[in-house]
Design a protein around this nucleic acid. Sequence first.
DNA 1: CCCATATACTTACTTAGGTAAGTAATTTTA
DNA 2: TAAAATTACTTACCTAAGTAAGTATATGGG
Lengths: 134, 134
Amino acid sequence: MQKLLFHEIHQKSRLSVKEVNDALKEFHLYSSQWSILFCLKQFGEMTQKEIWQYLNVEAPTVTRTLMRLEHSDWIVRKEGEDKRERLVQLSESAKTMVPQIEKRIQEVEEGLLSSLSEAEQEQLIELLKKIGNH
Amino acid sequence: MQKLLFHEIHQKSRLSVKEVNDALKEFHLYSSQWSILFCLKQFGEMTQKEIWQYLNVEAPTVTRTLMRLEHSDWIVRKEGEDKRERLVQLSESAKTMVPQIEKRIQEVEEGLLSSLSEAEQEQLIELLKKIGNH
DNA sequence: CCCATATACTTACTTAGGTAAGTAATTTTA
DNA sequence: TAAAATTACTTACCTAAGTAAGTATATGGG
């Protein structure tokens, strides 16, 4: 029983990443890159630590993705007041593109969730949040 | 709103993989390898296609994981009647280990789900199944 | 003040998963 | 029945994410 549950979570996680990646192709982006761009759009300038804490991933994962985003001019990094920190920001061109991309991603998500009512979506998120709270 | 939902699925998926990997360390196994061993325990001899279809992953993913499992003597492969196919089976030593591992994994899963009632677990799986059915 | 410790980030290496293209065996079709 | 198409698997290469260990800066205690 429980096995089916994790099987299902795992599969839907992969499915949503796949569809998001597909939609992001036209922007030459990947889902994890988008996660960071969205994060920066929401919160403005952030340290790398703030990013990986918010996304709940390890620091090296963020380092790697930021390197790619920097290389393709989606983000800009500068030294922090604390010289160990690096402050990350959307580039000017990213600022104009992000709203368009956001709209496209929203469509994908709505498609994936079209079989669930608003109430069911709320319910699902509440149940998911309960996982791992021991 | 919807973003939080996928954010949550993604995170819980990673969390469960992480905890399962941690439990599997003592057996020198990884979660995806376990998925295949469990599959073979349930269904007996399978072709690689049957495995990737059941797990809903791509063929190369299974090829790679099976190579590792074969190398560490968890599985055995032989040519099928159709010579393009390869029939996969648990090794003799795997057959004796798998029940022990299964028990350990069950504990992990129960821990992760300990905040949810049986009814909530059922509900969650039903809602997850609805994702992507357009 | 200086040394030990902690913090922020990076590097190197591992598995997981995807796509695209290749190979060999089988099946379909003309 | 020979050529074309399909199928099963593999190889090569990409991103994602984790752990362990390294580097450089900051901080706190003696």
